[in-house]
Design a binder for these strands. Structure first.
Lengths: 139, 139
DNA sequence: GGAATACTGACGCCATAACGCAAGTATACG
DNA sequence: CGTATACTTGCGTTATGGCGTCAGTATTCC
């Protein structure tokens, strides 16, 4: 499975937190999830829980076989599914706990990252990666 | 094949959980998140915490003004940002707690939804919305 | 009123990717 | 062997969406 599920070690530094957040927001996984057909397929596999073949998923979702094969491959490449070839059939399986963990990590990263007491208005706002030209007005 | 994909009977609770999950996986929000530029902009606003104008974000992220305006509008439409117009400037703000809550809900929905003890192999699997045509094998 | 600021919307260009078909590959079975 | 099954991959079409430009709108300030 892909690295997306690994927990980054986060020393308690703002820059680390930002890095963690940015990494979790890495678009590969989200892009894979954001496509309706893929979401449907993933949903199907999550609901099922056991490994499924391409044919099964295609029949289940009533989607063209070759499209399902391609989408499953995309989902697996994004780390959302594991795949195992046995004989001539490939068994795809959704790792629900890993996926749930990923989203919880993302939520935690957002919590850690967000300035609870507001951003200092007129100096020392590290909102942005590398730009210190426009410090200024607040509504 | 794949009896697992049938849903002979759908208990109300299970179908509710599925509905909840599917609603959370609604692609609007994920699609908005899955675009690198938008992720950068959202990240910037999350890190800042306070409301920011389009001009500020554009300068901060070094992105073309009108693009930023468009992306901010997209993010707001997807529910990822709140916007408030005051005078001639529009203040966009990221609601970090809400976003974190969304991802936690998604994680919870996945946990609830996934069959902890595995999917019964040969009968009574309600993985799929509406298809009961095939019987078959499991790995 | 007129100019400046802050944003929005419309047009076209282009890259990416989904879709469907069909041909190709790999494995199993008789 | 040859055939059937289970995928994969390549190709052309279509659709979506990001990007840049520029014109338009709304509000403020002089």
């Amino acid at each position: 499975m892909a690295s997306v599920f690994q927990h980054p070690k986060t020393p308690k530094q703002a820059s680390r937190k930002r890095a963690r957040f940015d990494r979790l927001l890495e678009p590969e996984m989200l892009k894979a999830l954001a496509e309706p057909t893929r979401a449907q397929i993933l949903s199907c596999l999550l609901k099922c829980g056991r490994p499924c073949s391409v044919t099964e998923v295609a029949e289940c979702c009533s989607i063209d076989f070759s499209m399902v094969a391609r989408h499953l491959s995309t989902l697996a490449r994004a780390g959302l599914l594991s795949s195992e070839k046995k004989g001539r059939t490939v068994w795809y399986q959704a790792d629900a706990p890993a996926l749930a963990t990923y989203f919880r990590d993302l939520a935690d990263a957002i919590d850690e990252l967000s300035p609870q007491d507001g951003c200092p208005t007129d100096d020392d706002c590290d909102c942005c990666p590398s730009d210190a030209s426009t410090k200024g007005s607040t509504p």
